[in-house]
Design a protein around this nucleic acid. Structure first.
Lengths: 239, 239
DNA sequence: AGGTCGATTTCGCCC
DNA sequence: GGGCGAAGTCGACCT
């Protein structure tokens, strides 16, 4: 508590509707001609410039940490200058302010998610036979020098099988698995029963990714997330 | 103009500050506990749920096209339901509205960008000698079965040179160029004077990408965007 | 601090 | 409209 009972309020959001022009200079340069837009200024000084369309991405913005300075342009118009430590600059030249309010929000409890890749990995770790029949899990997040393999398994014949899991299987995922396989195949402990096999498992596999995988001897496995969740639920109900 | 002089206003943005709980079910499920947040409802019905922190990405959102329906929950509280054609649902349960205004924005002229990869590619196409001395351009966006090569060139000795351009050179770009080279080296027309050479050109090349490129016999070229733009400007000034 | 990888990525281009 | 690559990607996690 500060002097005089004043409390520093760090969770204030300012909503402004203004006719403005926006110029950004940083990793690129970008320009927005004069028009009416929504400006959101968050507690950390970050600024979002929204139009009424598009999706959630602003037309222009400044990421925190940054500071907003209110000044005056040569022609007397109000000018906001937002600067970051990395020398990025966002300049907002204001012709007219139509709305300007500030609101205290308080601390946000945060978002709870379910159904992302990590969850899919957990489900497949519990049910490796859904990836390929006869597969047994050796280790989840099996470490290598260039990163962890999602699932390391062995098939019925004792051959090592590296499983790369994606929500959506694209070409990058195949490259990633290829790099792992190249490295894993240098390990005599893994190749004792033959070369390490690769399985690319995803809820959806793009055609080009499938072509590249097949070309490299990698097996593709499309997994049904809902079915998998159903299996896992019923298993847990037994205990 | 509609009957009675009423005009359909399609560029309206609604700004709401409310204590609310948010539940999303679609590609994943997500939950936001009750707290005070900023809600932005755009003209196309899309909804953004912002807290006072984070960057420009909302905590939760619904992408257009979608429709917002205002209803009432079992306990009598106001409930907004946003639905899209793909069966995604965003449910906002409102405890209290602290602020609620609507604003007409008009049509946005749109964003002008400068300095992205495409622009860098244009500049290097005009000045291939900035990539490597003696290089002559054969074709920009040279087509292959797996995608276009940014610049196809020949060096002073007539050897084909494939140039992959990135703003920031990372490992993925080296993989991409490697795939192209593999394919290009199957074409007798290109390999008549020796194997196709690869050049990885970027404003900045990450150490790991450089190592991988070198390991594969790919030349790295760091290009100075500002200098390049200067050259191009002065060239155009001659005409 | 730097690298890697996921994302309800979104966005834009080309087929 | 689908596929694919870029992004001022952002953010989380790990070394």
């Amino acid at each position: 508590m500060g002097p005089g009972g004043l409390r520093v309020d760090s969770s204030l959001v300012r909503l402004v509707v203004a006719t403005c022009q926006v110029d950004y200079a940083g990793r690129l340069t970008a320009h927005l001609p004069m028009a009416t837009r929504v400006l959101m200024i968050k507690a950390d000084g970050s600024v979002l410039v929204h139009s009424d369309g598009g999706s959630y991405k602003p037309l222009n913005w400044m990421s925190p940490p940054c500071t907003l300075r209110e000044g005056e342009a040569d022609d007397g118009r109000v000018e906001w200058t937002v600067t970051s430590k990395t020398a990025d600059t966002l300049r907002i030249t204001i012709e007219e302010i139509h709305h300007d309010t500030s609101h205290e929000l308080g601390v946000d409890p945060g978002l709870q998610k379910d159904g992302v890749e990590k969850h899919l990995q957990e489900l497949l770790a519990d049910n490796p036979e859904m990836v390929a029949p006869g597969l047994r899990l050796v280790r989840r997040e099996f470490p290598t020098a260039i990163g962890p393999v999602d699932l390391m398994c062995r098939d019925a014949a004792g051959v090592a099988v590296a499983v790369e899991i994606k929500r959506r299987g694209e070409i990058d995922g195949v490259e990633q698995l290829t790099r792992y396989l190249e490295l894993l195949n240098r390990d005599p402990l893994l190749t004792a029963n033959g070369p390490v096999q690769g399985v690319f498992a995803a809820q959806e596999i793009k055609p080009q990714a499938r072509v590249l995988a097949t070309d490299r001897g990698i097996t593709c496995a499309v997994v049904d997330y809902d079915a998998l969740r159903g299996i896992d639920d019923s298993e847990h109900r037994l205990f």
